[in-house]
């Protein structure tokens, strides 16, 4: 992985609640004040090649959105750093590049309700001098057309659109900044299934036309299979498996990945074959020791409670963080 285009190096993100004045005085006086910090992301290292689409999957609360926000330059990491072609994405807690743009999950929240969508699209490019004020109108119209909307919509407000249309506007806004990397945080999760397919196809087309590099965050394994060459599986803030999407789905090397794939309801085979993963996702306030998955893992052995498995190369191009990776059977 020497040709790292986007490099995520040992990124950690910890959310510590800020102590109030009273608590701080109590702590100063020797009181037992407990600040319960959440370790949302722990020492994640990933590299994404130019033009590649990497899927990031996992259950709710596993830290995938937090990692996406760190990569997008919205949240400063507590440790490690993100670099795009050797250039740091953030400096002093502020984003310094426009080459990474973001599409958010909820298109009803991510567009300013009091701004016409034409202005929503041109605001960033104008502020960064990517387009001249005189050309802003035709610029916005062109982008609306690119994402499959009527160019005459430029004077409308977000509330006049459906969810799918709004998400197209949000995509146009992100792409109008001419990014090299697009971070998509569950961009289809809040849409109707029929609309989801349209938006996924839009992503496929735009990726090809604009040679985008993508970090695609989703809990929907099917969408990721459609869109991404490689997939990273996250569990409680760590990457537990990484590899080409097809291979990972066909023959997972981590029991968690296998459980995730089996938990996807299938139409074939008759009857309800839905088997949820045993147990609840543990609280990130108080994660299990060593391998975080051991309390729910069917393959857990004593070693899993003592020693945290490293993300090691199991097969060429395949990595998994499991002591018994070689023994994981293919998904049923």
């Amino acid at each position: 992985m020497s040709e790292g285009f986007l490099t995520i190096r040992e990124v950690s993100k910890r959310f510590a609640p800020q102590l109030g004045l009273g608590d701080r005085i109590a702590a100063r006086l020797g009181g037992a004040v407990e600040a319960r910090a959440v370790q949302a992301v722990s020492e994640v290292s990933l590299t994404i090649r130019r033009g590649e689409a990497l899927g990031l999957v996992g259950e709710s609360g596993c830290g995938k959105s937090t990692l996406g926000r760190v990569v997008a330059g919205i949240l400063p990491p507590s440790g490690g750093e993100v670099r795009l072609e050797q250039e740091p994405v953030m400096a002093n807690g502020r984003k310094t590049t426009t080459r990474i743009q973001t599409v958010f999950q909820d298109p009803f929240a991510s567009l300013d309700p009091r701004m016409r969508i034409g202005e929503t699209i041109t605001e960033g490019p104008l502020a960064h001098g990517l387009v001249k004020a005189a050309e802003a109108g035709s610029f916005a119209r062109r982008w609306l057309e690119t994402v499959g909307l009527d160019p005459d919509f430029v004077t409308r407000y977000p509330h006049q659109f459906s969810g799918g249309q709004r998400q197209r506007v949000a995509i146009a806004r992100a792409l109008a900044m001419a990014p090299d990397v697009l971070v998509c945080d569950e961009p289809v999760a809040s849409l109707d299934v029929s609309i989801q397919a349209q938006i996924v196809n839009l992503f496929l087309r735009l990726r090809r036309e604009l040679e985008l590099t993508m970090l695609f965050i989703s809990h929907d394994l099917g969408v990721v299979r459609h869109l991404c060459e490689r997939v990273a599986v996250m569990y409680l803030g760590r990457i537990v498996e990484l590899g080409p999407t097809g291979e990972v789905y066909a023959a997972p090397k981590h029991p968690y990945t296998r459980a995730l794939i089996e938990a996807v309801p299938k139409l074939s085979g008759g009857g309800a074959a839905f088997r949820p993963i045993a147990g609840e996702i543990p609280s990130p306030l108080d994660p299990p020791t060593a391998c975080a998955f051991h309390p729910r893992c069917p393959l857990a052995i004593a070693r899993c409670r003592i020693e945290r498995p490293a993300l090691r190369e199991v097969e060429p191009g395949r990595r998994a963080a499991c002591h018994r990776a070689e023994e994981v059977s293919p998904a049923a």
Partner: peptide
């Protein structure tokens, strides 16, 4: 989210 989206562009604080 729209404020986060503006910060992620990035746009200036005063804007």
């Amino acid at each position: 989210d729209y404020v986060e989206a503006a910060a992620a562009t990035p746009l200036s604080g005063s804007r």
